[in-house]
Structures are given as C-alpha cells and as structure tokens.
Simulated scan of single mutants.
Amino acid sequence: MPISSKRVLAAGVAVVAAGAGLSGCRSSGAENVDDSAHPSMTIMVGGIDKVIYLPAKLAENLGYFKDSGVDVTLKTEPAGAEAENLLIANKVDGVVGFYDHSVTLQAAGKCVESVVQLAKVPGEAEVVSNDADISGPSDFDGKKLGVTSPGSSTDYLTQYLATKNGVDTSDYTTVTAGAGSDFIAAMQNDGIDAGMTTDPTIAQVEKQGLGKVLLDMRTEEGTKEALGGLYPAASLYMDCDYVEQNPETVQKVATAFVKTLQWISTHSPAQIAAEMPEDYNGGDPALYEQSIKDSMPSFTDDGVMPEGGPETVLDVLGTFNPDVEEKKDDIDLSKTYTTQFVENAG
C-alpha cells in the first residue's frame, strides 16, 4: 500500500526542510570536478551521529579524505528519505544512506548507484516498549510503530516485516519518531509501541529500561532470520551521471572509505570511539562504546557489495512497494551499485 494511504503521525518531531542549512552546499551537478586540481565533494549523511554511518565522520577525522586528495564536506540530515531528495535535487554530490534507495529510485526512473558498500546488514533493530503486548511482527496490528520518517529505510523494513507476517500496512499507525532523544521521548510518552532504530538509540532504550530488542538486524544471523538474506544497507551512493563524469574524484573518496573500513576492522570499539567527536557519546562514553561494539558486525571491511544482497533488497521492496513490485522484473540491479572503485582502492 502506498505510503500516502497509510496513517502517519508525528511524534513531536520537527520536520527539517530539505533546503535548510544548504545555502552554501551546491552540487557540482553536470560540472566535471575531476578537472580541478583540488576536487571537492559534498556528502549528505542520513544522521551523522548514528553508528551505522560512523565511517563517514571517522574517515574525515582520520584524515583519509585529505590523504586521498579530495576536499569533502559532510552535512547531516536526520532522515534518509530527505537526504535522497537532496541528491535528486542536485543539492549534494553523494549520500551516505541505505542502498535500498538505489532500487526504489530506479523504479521511479532515476539512476543512482552505491559506489562503496559500508554495511552488509541494516544495523538496525525493532525495539518494543515494555508496556506493549508485542512478541513478533504478527502483533503489529493496531499498534503505533516508530520509523525515522515515511519513505525512509526504517519505514521500508517495517512495512516488509508487517506484510511478511500477515499484517497489512494500513492496520498499524506509522509514527515519525526520528532517532536519539526524539525516539526515546516517543517511547517514554506512549507515542509508539515499538520502533525501528539504530545505535546508540538501541543501547539507550535498553539502558533506561524502556524496552527490549525484538528483532536484531545488526548481525548477519539476525538479518537472515528476519529478512531471509543479507540486506546491504549503509552505503555511499551517487547519481550515475556524476559517477560517470567524475571517476577520479569518486575514486579518491572511495579509497578513503575503504581505508576507513579496514581501520575499523582492526581496531577496538574504544579506539574507534576515541576518534569520534566527544558529543556523539551523549555523555555516556561506555554506552557509546557498547553501541559501536554491537554494530561492528554490520560493516564490510572492503566496501564490496555482499553476494546476493541486492536480490534480497529487491525481494523485500517488491513485497509491499507497488512501484517496485510493478517493475520488479525490469529492474537492473547491476545499475544500482558498482564495485569498480572499491576494487581499485588497494
């Protein structure tokens, strides 16, 4: 069922305007930035303090963008759907967000592709309030379910889990719960019965005794159990034309991200946390380190798309998204990602 026909509520979260804070953030568009001696790129991150997108800020803090010879400006937009819109509007050059947007956009006649696959699983969990009578997705009927925003990947996954377990998407209420303190407040104030979120929010919910993890998609095992296969999620995706016109610049950025993924795979949560901005830990360094530890299994160590992953994403989206379902047989998954740049990053 299309999102427009679903019941959607806001949990006291302000909607961020797509153009907010972007007056100095104009995409290069059709310009060939490869011609510049010091190429630059603006990347929008769908929630820069989320652990699933940690490689973006870490790459900057480790100096890997600079080492690769490219000036990268990181911006943040809390909802992945809004980040996607900014890319389509040529307001940014790339997005650190979920790979599944590449599939839904192809169904809409647009071409974007993942150039670095940061994660092989969503790195998310469905957390349930202690006051809610929910033992599985089959209990979603009549419940208020939190997502980052309508059209976000958390919304996609929630719809799939409901549909797969016999609950129509019109039978529950979608609540825009955001993440972090907004999500916590929604759960504390009975704004949601359950919700899809990431670390460090997951760890905060558990520590405060507000709820528990129902479905854990931070690991390969949990993701396969919930979705039937690996679900490649966090990625760096860009407009296909931009990639074609600026291969040297894209290569520099991809190399920086691959070096970062390799660094993550050889360092401890404490060492990783030490390289991140102090305010990302929310005043609880130990909790932040635990969040990183719990999410580390989701990351790739080479930026390569996991085998069979795109097929799982297409199957999931084709279950509830009418646009994808209608064009499922025509979608060319090979155009939704490329391994060219990560293979050349060595």
Rank of each mutant, 00 (worst) to 15 (best):
L287F: 00
S295C: 10
A20Q: 15
T266D: 14
V250A: 08
G222K: 05
P137N: 03
Q204P: 01
D301L: 03
Y99A: 00
K207R: 13
I3M: 13
A273G: 03
G180N: 11
G222E: 08
D323V: 12
T260V: 12
A234T: 09
A18P: 05
Q262V: 10
A254S: 15
T104W: 02
A119C: 06
L87Q: 06
C111T: 12
F299N: 04
G209H: 07
Y160N: 10
M41T: 09
T300V: 08
G136C: 03
G211M: 05
G191M: 04
E220H: 04
K207A: 15
G12L: 00
E60R: 10
L54F: 14
D131L: 13
D239H: 07
E31G: 01
A226F: 00
P269V: 01
D49Y: 08
N61R: 13
E225L: 01
G309M: 00
Q106Y: 12
K120W: 00
Q262R: 15
T223Q: 00
G180S: 15
T174K: 06
P2T: 08
G282D: 11
P78L: 07
T255G: 11
S40A: 11
D239S: 11
F65P: 04
V324A: 13
A226Q: 02
Y99V: 03
V51Q: 05
L58A: 08
K144H: 12
P269E: 03
I52A: 15
I134P: 09
S170H: 14
I192Q: 04
M187F: 05
G222N: 10
T312H: 05
S68D: 14
Y288R: 02
